[in-house]
């Protein structure tokens, strides 16, 4: 089993390589060790679910992978390029051209319509999709000119996904994408993510504390207390429609 895993990975490109990653926050006078030496790789085209309770360090890990935060020690490289010592400007550029983000609370711009929210990204990307196509992938062709206030939570999250993929990113980072949604709507959102991974081959990292979502992943990485406690490879992936919680 281990051999097979090694073999599969060796044939694929490494997107992220993380070594001995440590992050210490200073909260007032208390030091919080969010990450205590994490090691991992992320390969192109796979769906990875990071599973762990709150405070386990999964969001910190995702933020560092996404260039939103910097590590206290250790290293992160993206496609062989070191992110650990990247400047503010380099990180901005990295986020701009290579990473797509999906957040728990969607983070749409309330003053822009669904289409315009996608255009926010396509306007500055190097090799973007047509915004309408991105919205079609998440099934929102009918809602192009609606403002966030006119969309349901699930629809808003799908706009956020369309926005994230519209730059044709190498990797999609999703922080609790279904956290604010009911299960039915959550599944629709996960279906969109799965479809994108399948059709576009975008490496997708999903953070969640919902263990049921792990079923749709290629690999599941368990975090607790700032370290990676277990990595599990799913031999059979479930379709999001089969998930239940």
């Amino acid at each position: 089993m281990i051999d097979k895993e090694e073999e599969t990975h060796n044939t694929r490109d490494v997107v992220f390589q993380v070594r001995d990653l440590t992050k210490i926050y200073k909260m007032g006078e208390v030091e919080v060790h969010a990450l205590r030496g994490a090691d991992l790789e992320l390969y192109s085209g796979e769906i990875v679910v990071f599973l762990g309770p709150s405070g386990s360090g999964k969001s910190t890990l995702l933020n560092i992978l996404g260039g939103l935060d910097t590590a206290t020690s250790g290293s992160v490289s993206y496609r062989g390029k070191d992110l650990t010592n990247a400047s503010e400007q380099e990180l901005t550029e990295y986020r701009r051209y290579h990473v797509g983000f999906v957040f728990q609370f969607y983070n749409l711009i309330p003053s822009l319509t669904a289409r315009e929210n996608v255009e926010v990204v396509t306007e500055i990307a190097e090799n973007p999709m047509v915004p309408e196509d991105a919205l079609a992938i998440v099934g929102l062709t009918e809602r192009l000119d609606h403002f966030p206030a006119q969309l349901s939570g699930g629809e808003q999250q799908r706009v956020a996904i369309a926005r994230a993929i519209s730059k044709n990113p190498e990797v999609l980072l999703c922080d609790e994408p279904t956290g604010a949604l009911d299960s039915k709507t959550g599944i629709v959102v996960l279906e969109a993510l799965e479809r994108i991974n399948r059709e576009l081959g975008t490496a997708t990292a999903i953070i969640t504390h919902n263990a049921d979502i792990a079923g749709m992943a290629d690999r599941v990485i368990y975090l607790s207390n700032g370290i990676i406690s277990e990595v599990k490879t799913n031999t059979v992936k479930k379709a999001p429609g089969e998930l239940k919680w």
């Binding site: 996404g66 901005t92 990295y94 701009r96 990473v99 983000f101 711009i109 990204v121 926005r163």
Partner: peptide, 16 residues
């Protein structure tokens, strides 16, 4: 600030 941060996350520069 939330909206502007979101844009920063999406890769907008400080100037933008």
């Amino acid at each position: 600030s939330r909206e502007l941060s979101s844009l920063r996350v999406l890769g907008y520069t400080r100037g933008e």
